[in-house]
Amino acid sequence: MASGELQFIQQLRNRAGRPKGAVRLGIGDDCAVLRPPSGHDVLVTTDFSLEGRHFRRDWHPAASAGHRCLARGLSDLAAMGAQPMAAFLSLALPTGFTRRAANRTWLDGFLGGLLHLAKQTKTPLAGGDTSTAPGDAILADIVLLGSVPEGTELRRSKARPGDGLYVTGHLGGASAELAALAKSPRSLRKASPADDHPHLYPQPQLRVGQRLRSLASAAIDISDGLSTDLTHLCEESRVGAIVEADSLPLHQLLTNKKDALQHALHGGEDYQLLFTASATSKVPRSIGGIPITHIGQIVRGKDITLRSNGKTERLEPAGWEHSL
């Protein structure tokens, strides 16, 4: 990393605060020391946030980039019903990045957005790493640890024929907001996480996921798009599904009816939860103020279909694909 690494780490340590919860020893030593709750399993997830692919400095407010970096991993924990234990952030910045005042301001905003969400979700920042990026783009990696009571984690692989198919919240909003951002990159510079900005400030459904441990048979978060993530769930469970198009809970940003279904099915980054539950489960209409919508059924076989206006067609995975 650029000069001032030790000063940066000390500043970050001060902003992160003293270790809390499962973190016995945080930033400052070669390793963090964690103590998971007795009788719990530990879950680990990691996510890259790459400038130019997951965020753009000329589009996204710095706080949004930091918020989204942490939200991606928190949503993975939510999908498995976990309680966050600790986060580890690794940053690679271009050579000489912090020598410019504007870049230092951006970095401060990035960390502010990440730490604000960390505080909201009671996720201690317990460590990480810094380095110099090989090019001109910022690279950020978030590692998250969570815990669940032993053997109670939600998985993608336990959906069964006859289960109902459900989603939390509303769909397509993140995709619609990203499209609006692409048309007018400066239009959302003053957006706040206190408002409904599903792309800039997605809200991981941690509390809902924890509640679903006693309700759901299988679950996944909608990061790559409903069509793609449903395919992942069905492949792991070796089942098929029928999705009712008219039942999809569309986000209020989807004002263009012609494109609404495309955004809801394939847009991605909603970071809502897609889950299944047996026919005998009493799934509530909302959990903690987050609406729950029944959108279809799990069926035998491998086919995933979309039913709309009395017609049925194959639903192909057309969301985000991670190229290698």
Rank of each mutant, 00 (worst) to 15 (best):
A102N: 06
Q297D: 08
R53G: 03
T46W: 03
L139S: 12
T293F: 01
V143Q: 09
S227A: 15
V33Q: 12
Q262A: 14
E269T: 14
Y271D: 10
C234D: 08
D196F: 06
A133S: 10
P198H: 07
Q262F: 10
M1L: 11
V23C: 13
I290C: 09
D229E: 13
H266T: 05
R100E: 14
E269H: 14
R13P: 04
L178T: 02
P204Y: 06
D58A: 00
A16M: 08
L91P: 04
D246K: 15
T123C: 07
A118V: 01
D303K: 14
A191Y: 02
L315V: 08
L50H: 04
A101Y: 05
L233Y: 03
A264S: 07
A216N: 00
G164S: 04
R155E: 13
I9K: 12
N256E: 15
R24P: 05
L165F: 11
G66T: 06
A101G: 02
L233P: 02
E269Y: 14
P193V: 11
G169E: 05
A78W: 00
L145F: 06
T255M: 15
N14E: 13
S131F: 09
H170R: 15
I298N: 00
C69G: 04
G301S: 08
L324W: 05
R285V: 12
G240P: 13
N309C: 14
V44F: 11
K190L: 12
L93Q: 01
K158D: 15
D141K: 13
I138N: 04
L115R: 02
A22K: 03
S175K: 12
I142R: 01
A101D: 06
D30Y: 10
A174W: 04
I287P: 03
T293D: 00
S227L: 15
A137S: 04
